[in-house]
Each structure stands twice: as structure tokens, then as C-alpha cells.
């Protein structure tokens, strides 16, 4: 279980997170939908350990991780721009965590096969298309045997046609691992394609919703109210 309780974060006089609370169970893909600037990135940075919350707590599998540095959280992280290491090959990227005692050669082979990366292992990230870069980024995070996953708009650079192929693959892979997954996006369609449960981020607060359509209606209303 990935849990957050009453997370608060302010930057100077701007209160960005106002008591964010949620829980994601094993085998659940919770999609967090929100407009740009609603606090999604701040939440992501707090969960990964880059930022410290002003108050509140985060737990994985019942263990309090709020004060742990990122390297001790065992949280798989797929960032927006894939974050692939440009000087390393696909193989070296996916095997990266092995030198830190995370994952195994078996999990590497498993991910490579599952995500169809066998023929790309010796290429550098810049030689891949956006869709394949996203796959490598996911494979790298999963090969480290994480206790939970956090994906922050991981396929932004993939065009819509390819997303229709990539998203089911991601969903199947993530569900198969039976770990908690928090998937952040601003796209309600993408949310519907991958999620098993949904939340919306609005005004620094995270609330559960029943469907991406509901999120879309809220976002549309918010955009209308702000005159965008």
C-alpha cells in the first residue's frame, strides 16, 4: 500500500498542497488528474523524496518513508521526459539499479521481453522513438524491483496514435506486478485507458472521483472559470 496522510507544502506565501491524503493498494493503478500548476509536480517530488513536506507523512507497505532520502525509498519513478541517461545504452539504462543491489538479471530479462525491447538493447536513447523511450524508462524503473511505482506523465512525448498501443501494454505490465501505482496525467483520455481508480487534484487537495469523464467535466469548468 502507498499511503499519504495530510501532506502540506508551501513555497513562501503560496500554499501548494493543502492536506493531500490518499491510499493506493497493491494491483491498483490510481490515476491523478489535474491541470498544470495544480500541485501535481510538488506532490511527485515529495513522494520521490526530492522535496520535504512541511507536514504529513508517506508510507509504503506500512513503513514510514517521509524522512528517507530518495535512494532508500525503493520507489520506481518514471518522469515526464523519460529521464533516460543519454550516455548509456538501453541495456545499461535498464540494468542501472543492479549496481546498487536492486533488481536482478532475471527481472531485467523479464521486463525486456514484456516490453518488446530485445532488439534495441545496444542503442542509445536518442536513437529510439518517443514510444520506445517511454518503454525503456518503464522497464528501468520496474527492473529495480520497486515496492511502489510513480509515473509522472510518462508518455507525454508519444503521439496519440502510438499511445493507443503503448497504454494497454503499460497497464498490463503494471497490473501484472501487483504493486501500488500512482499515475499522474493531465489527460482524461489517457487516465481512462490506464487507470483502475481515479483522483483529481484541485486547489491543492486530492479528491477521489468515479471516472475520468468526471475529472474532465471539473477541469473544463475550472478552465472556463479562469477564462482559459
Amino acid at each position: 500500500m502507498l499511503e499519504a496522510r495530510e501532506l502540506h507544502k508551501s513555497f513562501d506565501d503560496r500554499h501548494v498542497l493543502k492536506g493531500v491524503t490518499f491510499g493506493v493498494g497493491p494491483g491498483e493503478i490510481r490515476v491523478l488528474i489535474g491541470l498544470n500548476g495544480c500541485g501535481k509536480t510538488t506532490l511527485q517530488r515529495i513522494i520521490t523524496g526530492i522535496l520535504e513536506p512541511d507536514s504529513g507523512s508517506i508510507r509504503i507497505g506500512g513503513e514510514e518513508i517521509t524522512a528517507l532520502p530518495p535512494e532508500e525509498r525503493q520507489l520506481g519513478y518514471v518522469p515526464q521526459n523519460t529521464g533516460l541517461f543519454p550516455h548509456l545504452s538501453v541495456r545499461e539504462n535498464i540494468l542501472y539499479s543492479l549496481k546498487n543491489g536492486r533488481g536482478s538479471v532475471e527481472s531485467f530479462h523479464g521486463m525486456v521481453e514484456l516490453l518488446g525491447l530485445e532488439t534495441y538493447l545496444d542503442l542509445k536513447p536518442k536513437q529510439l522513438s518517443g514510444g520506445y523511450r517511454s518503454r525503456v524508462s518503464l522497464a528501468r524503473a520496474l527492473a529495480s524491483s520497486p515496492r511502489a511505482m510513480l509515473l509522472d506523465e510518462p508518455i507525454t512525448e508519444v503521439d496519440r496514435a502510438k499511445k493507443e498501443f503503448v497504454l494497454p501494454l503499460f497497464r498490463e505490465t503494471l497490473l501484472g506486478l501487483k504493486i501500488p501505482v500512482l499515475y499522474i496525467t493531465h489527460d482524461p483520455w489517457e487516465a481512462g485507458e490506464i487507470g483502475t481508480s481515479f483522483s483529481i487534484m484541485k486547489g491543492g487537495v486530492m479528491s477521489p472521483i468515479s471516472s475520468p469523464e468526471e475529472a474532465f467535466a471539473v477541469i473544463r469548468q475550472e478552465a472556463r472559470d479562469s477564462g482559459e
Partner: peptide, 17 residues
């Protein structure tokens, strides 16, 4: 890109590593 460092740390690297 600072995100590269963030990812490396999520994969188990300490800051010096």
C-alpha cells in the same frame, strides 16, 4: 537535466554516486 539525477537516486544512487 536535474530529472536525470532524481531518477538515478530513485534507482538507489546516493548523491556522490
Amino acid at each position: 537535466d536535474r530529472e536525470l539525477i532524481n531518477v538515478a537516486r530513485s534507482l538507489g544512487d546516493s548523491p556522490p554516486r
